[in-house]
Amino acid sequence: MVAFRLNGEDVDLDVPNDSTLLYVLAFDANALGPKYGCGKSQCGSCTVLIDGDPVRSCDVTVSAAAGRQVTTLAGLREADGGPGPLQRAMIEEQAAQCGYCTAGAIMQAQALLDRNPNPTESEVRSGLNEILCRCGSHNRIVRAVLRAAEEI
């Protein structure tokens, strides 16, 4: 059994303690943000926040989340279910081609903005440097994060 808070709601799951956090979030808790990309913390598409810190959920067991706050894309939405400020900025910049990396990129960027609400462009790039994007949407994502910083 593992218990934690997911996007503000208590979850209590009957899963093996050594289960990979990503698969528990995806398949047991039905969180639709984090994606498998590499399984070894190299690409960042599985990134979620645990107590506000970005964590590669493919590379830790669910015990890393026990008793803590886990945030995925759904946790950044407005109360009415609509997209939150960073998500809106990503939509406004149309910051995707395939979009597979964006769930991880958004979580990583949210952690950055939480620590540094007014980052420079270079701080945004460095903050996202461990998130891989293959379509070449980097500059759009950077613009979206800067736009969100302005709006927040």
Partner: peptide, 18 residues
């Protein structure tokens, strides 16, 4: 606007993996 982008940013069913 692209019909699929808001859902993917908002964590809604978009991908096969979802």
């Amino acid at each position: 606007p692209r019909l699929d982008i808001p859902g993917m940013m908002n964590g809604e069913t978009t991908f096969l993996q979802d």
